[in-house]
Amino acid sequence: MTATLVIFWGFAALAVGAALLCITRKNPVASALWLVVTLFSIAALFVVLDAQFIAVLQLLVYAGAIMVLFLFVIMLLNLGRGGPSDLKGPAGLAVGVLLAGLMLVQLLGLRQASAAPGLAAGAMARAAAEQGMVPPIARPLFSVYLVPFEITSILLLAALVGAVVLAKRKL
């Protein structure tokens, strides 16, 4: 249990630190790479929280596909070289930090309202040990959640067509 806690807090600290660096770096490429570190750490947290399949998905989809798309666009637009900082001025900075701090206080307050205890501790890990990692997610996904799943495929098709149309030379 202590080893789990050490791993959890280590990756949590890494995620928060990398996110902090991500929002403060001047260079968009550096921001993107620090965001990749954050996404990797969150994937590690998923593993600690008994969601191994989601962790692999996080690495493939977020750290793999989406961040490559971001870096590709940054380099296509030639934004990689350091210009003047795009951080807002002192007034904007103060208001932004104040609002984000307010948000943090509210979210931490919400944490006090504890969730109703549904499953026994370690039930997810036991289900994974009995049936494997994927079946406990795949079965409901293709039965109870079949209609949302199909709608997602239509959404992805629409996004595909939309991205091609928007990125064409003549809008």
């Binding site: 928060v16 929002i23 795009d86 951080l87 932004g96 930090v97 984000a100 948000m103 943090l104």
Partner: peptide, 15 residues
Amino acid sequence: AVLFALGVAGVLLRR
């Protein structure tokens, strides 16, 4: 919550 607040801060602070 901390990560979400950092995301909000980034949206508010960057141009």
